[in-house]
């Protein structure tokens, strides 16, 4: 049994618990940024360990990063107006 997979799973559950606790305990809008940050960390753990991007070859990583980059452009251009008002 892979230790990396188990550590990733434990990390994911800790991040989940942290997110729920933040929602309950942290007042004001600061918790929104923390929750989004925790979600990004969880996604990064799944991408790198469960989806094996950590050990993937360069071309596959390029495809994965490309997909995230286009999504990033999409989010940035869609939200730029609303976030800068």
């Amino acid at each position: 049994m892979s230790k990396a997979l188990l550590f990733a799973w434990v990390g994911l559950l800790l991040l989940l618990a942290g997110s729920v606790l933040i929602t309950a305990l942290v007042p004001g809008p600061a918790y929104i940024g923390l929750n989004i940050g925790f979600a990004v960390l969880m996604a990064a753990l799944i991408f790198t360990v469960f989806m094996k991007l950590r050990s993937a070859d360069g071309l596959l990583r390029l495809f994965a990063v490309g997909a995230l980059m286009w999504l990033g452009f999409f989010l940035l251009f869609s939200l730029a107006d609303f976030l800068t008002r």
């Binding site: 933040i22 929750n35 979600a39 799944i46 991408f47 989806m51």
Partner: peptide
């Protein structure tokens, strides 16, 4: 098949965060 399943996990993480956690 595993890649697809893990991707569905990632999507849920963001759905859960945006819908359930941003509540105040």
């Amino acid at each position: 098949g595993g890649l697809y399943w893990h991707f569905v996990d990632v999507i849920w993480v963001f759905i859960f965060t945006l819908l359930y956690l941003l509540r105040s």
